[in-house]
């Protein structure tokens, strides 16, 4: 066995450190490129209203001026859920979700999402009127909460979000932008033990120049029309 200097062996250690360090640097680099995979830093937390109940308030907007004001083109024109798509709710509770919708209609691609599924009572309140489903051409978005594979406590909730008419006046001003009077949709579902879930809008409301239209852009980007829901203790 040839004799090597100690510098040689030190060099091996150094190259390993430099290599793994460079890898860590590249990981951080990928995480910080906003366009690659955008995760909003804010978390929308539900307010506890009792020992086993909480309320979560969300809004859906036809553009991103309100909660992604720093985004550039084309994201600034994307439909979006506000204040964040990173949701947090308490475990073992009844969660009341209130969604204020300022957006117009997009025709559903799949009629399944016309109906309300998985809520308490199998209904949603649209401007305080109980409904178990909406017409396919009067829906802006859906809020569909689904379980991740092999979850211990499956939750499946899907509600259609009633659209405002396309010709509605825009009296409401938020952050200097004008929006129509919103439809208020609310529904309830039950959580079990702590876990992670994902949610997504199933009404193709994204920008798309190609048929079948509407599945890309906001529809395929976390922070806009897709996100996670964490059930915490």
């Amino acid at each position: 066995m040839k004799k090597h200097t100690s510098g040689f062996y030190i060099g091996i250690i150094v190259s390993l450190i430099v290599g793994f360090g460079a890898t860590a640097g590249i990981v951080v680099g990928f995480q910080s490129i906003r366009g690659l995979g955008y995760e909003p830093s804010a978390v929308a937390r539900a307010n506890k209203t009792g020992p086993s109940s909480a309320t979560l308030a969300l809004q859906t907007f036809p553009d991103s001026q309100v909660c992604h004001a720093d985004a550039g083109a084309p994201q600034i024109d994307w439909v979006t859920y506000c204040p964040s798509t990173h949701l947090e709710v308490p475990a073992n509770s009844v969660i009341t979700v209130v969604i204020s919708n300022y957006d117009g209609a997009t025709t559903l691609a799949n009629d399944y999402f016309r109906q309300v599924h998985g809520t308490v009572g199998d209904v949603e309140l649209v401007n305080n009127k109980p409904m178990s489903g909406l017409d396919a051409d009067k829906i802006s978005h859906t809020f569909t909460l689904q379980s991740v594979p092999d979850t211990s406590y499956p939750i499946f909730v899907s509600v259609p979000i009633a659209a405002v008419p396309d010709d509605a006046p825009t009296p409401v001003t938020i952050n200097g932008n004008s929006y129509p009077k919103p439809n208020i949709i609310s529904f309830q579902f039950r959580t079990g033990p702590a876990g992670t879930y994902v949610w997504h809008c199933y009404d193709p409301c994204g920008e798309d120049r190609e048929p079948p239209f509407g599945f890309s852009g906001a529809m395929s980007t976390t922070g806009y029309m897709a996100g996670t829901l964490t059930v915490t203790n």
Binding site: A109, N110, Y112, F113, Q115, H117, G118, T144, Q146, S147, P154, F156, V198, H200, Y202, F215, M219, S220
Partner: peptide
């Protein structure tokens, strides 16, 4: 559909309300 399977039983007229 990205990213859910919706399931129907056309012979029974049923649609699965769950995943």
């Amino acid at each position: 559909q990205q990213w859910l399977w919706t399931i129907e039983y056309p012979q029974y007229g049923a649609t699965s309300q769950e995943q």
